[in-house]
Amino acid sequence: MQQGEEHTLVKARTYAAVYAALLVLTAVTIAVARMHLGQFSVLGALVIASIKASLVLLWFMHLKYENKLFMIMFVVAVAFLTIAIGVTFLDIAYR
């Protein structure tokens, strides 16, 4: 860590901010679930969970700071998972 202590402090603050955001979003997801939104409750929960996962991926797992290759690999992997889930769902829904 050549940039010195100031950089270190910024990093620690960023991590703390991400952590705080994750806690807030957990509270939000519990609150949303209490609102009984019916069919939208699944969608709402998945959207919030995905925002939380993105925070962890980008900052805690450093995807934001890594070589672009990492992001491309990740997107490809998730795309294939989405295709697998999506196509199965089309089959189930229109059977």
Binding site: T29, I30, A33, V42, A45, L46, A49, K52, A53, V56
Partner: peptide, 11 residues
């Protein structure tokens, strides 16, 4: 993060 809402919250 995904397991928690899917099993515990969505009712």
């Amino acid at each position: 993060i995904y397991l928690f809402p899917l099993f515990y919250l969505i009712t």
